[in-house]
């Protein structure tokens, strides 16, 4: 969804690049960090439509509740079971977050290593790719056997799934610096280390954040896979139990909460990006012709 550029009062856009400046002011305003009510309405429109069609379909075709519950029932289940849903989501959220943070903590130094050492790049990259193509769902039961039913295998799975996109994007970002920029830095008397900190690192941030966004949603999925395979708590565990008793309303309710966790973590990263890398967003808008 592109930003809609608000027309400003005539005469208020002085200067040679009014369109760009206007956009910048819009991006800088604090309320833009949150969704505008109008935009929020646009985001929610398809969701509301889907719910209405769904509700109508269950009535018209007389679909049985254990196959497909009605949205109304799902929503009331969400409310009735809110305490257990919150408790279980807290577990899932913690596992995802820890796995994600661990992935960032490991991925960034590895990416730096990949950037600076050709030998490291040659030896590490194959391992990375292999670790990525091994299906985590297949590994999950093994991890549970080795590490038990606690949170450890879930954090590990979240880590494993989130790690790859973050390390690849960070390495790509760190290699993103124009060679001439390095020349410029050297002519300014910057050492290799200073070039890294003052030029390479900041210029990698837009791509780094793109990796974080993919990684954070993957982390939630990783944690949930771990919970499905074997757990004593968490949304995945709750879903398995609800499914066992054909409590389809509760299954749907927990799926909604799972999605909500993923969305919340994604939005958190996006807000962080807008605060730390404001130039990335404006450039993206330019490319979109917005």
């Amino acid at each position: 969804m592109t930003e809609i550029i608000k027309p400003t009062e005539p005469g208020s856009t002085s200067g040679p690049v009014p369109a760009r400046r206007q956009r910048m002011e819009q991006i800088k305003s604090p309320r833009d960090l949150w969704l505008w009510p109008r935009e929020f309405g646009l985001y929610m429109l398809p969701v509301v439509m889907l719910l209405l069609v769904w509700e109508a379909a269950t009535h018209v075709f007389g679909i049985q509740r254990f196959l497909l519950p009605r949205p109304g029932d799902v929503l009331s289940t969400l409310w009735e079971k809110r305490e257990i849903l919150l408790d279980e989501s807290w577990v899932t959220f913690q596992e995802s977050l820890l796995g994600f943070l661990l992935a960032v903590a490991v991925a960034v130094p590895v990416a730096v290593l990949l950037t600076f050492s050709k030998i490291a790049a040659r030896t590490i990259y194959p391992v990375l790719v292999i670790s990525q193509v091994i299906p985590k769902v297949a590994v999950a039961p093994l991890l549970v056997v080795w590490m038990g039913f606690g949170v450890a295998p879930k954090i590990l799975l979240a880590f494993l799934v989130a790690f790859f996109p973050i390390v690849v994007n960070t390495a790509t970002g760190l290699n993103n610096l124009e060679p001439k920029m390095i020349h410029l830095a050297r002519s300014m008397g910057a050492s290799t280390w200073q070039t890294f900190v003052y030029f390479r690192l900041p210029s990698s941030l837009p791509i780094f954040f793109a990796g974080l966004k993919v990684g954070v949603t993957f982390a939630v999925i990783g944690a949930l896979v771990g919970e499905f395979v074997g757990a004593g708590s968490g949304l995945g565990h709750l879903t398995v139990i609800a499914m066992g008793s054909l409590n389809t309303e509760l299954v749907f309710a927990s799926i909604i909460v799972m999605a909500a966790i993923g969305v919340a973590m994604y939005v958190a990263i996006e807000i962080l990006e807008r605060l730390l890398v404001p130039w990335s967003r404006s450039r993206r808008l330019e490319q979109m012709g917005g």
Partner: peptide, 18 residues
């Protein structure tokens, strides 16, 4: 080795966006 008692301007402005 690279001299630093110099100013260089390239075809690209190479301004730091941040």
């Amino acid at each position: 080795s690279p001299i630093s008692d110099v100013g260089i301007a390239f075809q690209e402005d190479l301004l730091l966006e941040w």
